[in-house]
């Protein structure tokens, strides 16, 4: 398996895994997978797991919808302000596949949001402690697990939440 940041490792991220205990934010030692979302292209939240999230202000559907909306807009915005390419559509105009750059994380003083979007529109979001390093490989690994255990499961109907 692999480890999140430094220190202890999260042994499994497949459904039914025992939630790994997360250190409280601010201790700064890593090992902090706090929240994980998986969305499909239609904005359906396929999976939601939290390991450390003391404050909840919204109901889960609102929360997931806002998260999806944030990433959707942010992707379009990051492509729009990209200074390296000349071809960009207007802000708000939907991007064609393959168009524009894509972002993979953003950080605030209290958390870091790691993001992976596959060309097929699967979005993986992992919220960690702000001092964790690059999680792109981790997210790729999770995507591989999704393929092995969800996509290849003949009983799974595409587009439904993962049980």
């Amino acid at each position: 398996m692999f480890s999140f940041g430094g220190g202890s490792s999260l042994t499994s991220v497949v459904p039914d895994a025992t939630p790994a205990p997360a250190a409280p934010p601010g201790t700064g030692t890593g090992a902090n997978a706090q929240v994980l979302y998986v969305f499909n292209r239609g904005g359906v939240c396929l999976l939601y797991r939290e390991w450390h999230r003391p404050l909840r202000t919204l109901d889960p559907t609102q929360d997931q919808k806002l998260m999806f909306g944030l990433l959707f807009s942010l992707r379009s915005f990051t492509a729009k302000i990209d200074p390296t390419t000349a071809e960009k559509g207007n802000l708000g105009v939907p991007l064609l596949p393959g168009q524009g750059c894509s972002f993979y994380s953003f950080k605030t003083n209290t958390y870091k949001l790691n993001f992976l979007e596959s060309p097929s529109g699967i979005k993986l979001i992992l919220i960690t402690h702000p001092r964790t390093g690059d999680q792109r490989d981790t997210l790729k690994h999770i995507y591989n697990l999704y393929v092995e255990y969800v996509v290849k499961n003949p009983l799974y109907a595409p587009g439904t939440p993962i049980k």
Partner: peptide, 19 residues
């Protein structure tokens, strides 16, 4: 095909194609 594409993308490391 609708399922296989994810396996392909996950294992091949192909990112978005330009055209």
């Amino acid at each position: 095909g609708t399922r296989l594409v994810d396996e392909f993308l996950a294992k091949s490391n192909v990112s978005r194609c330009v055209d």
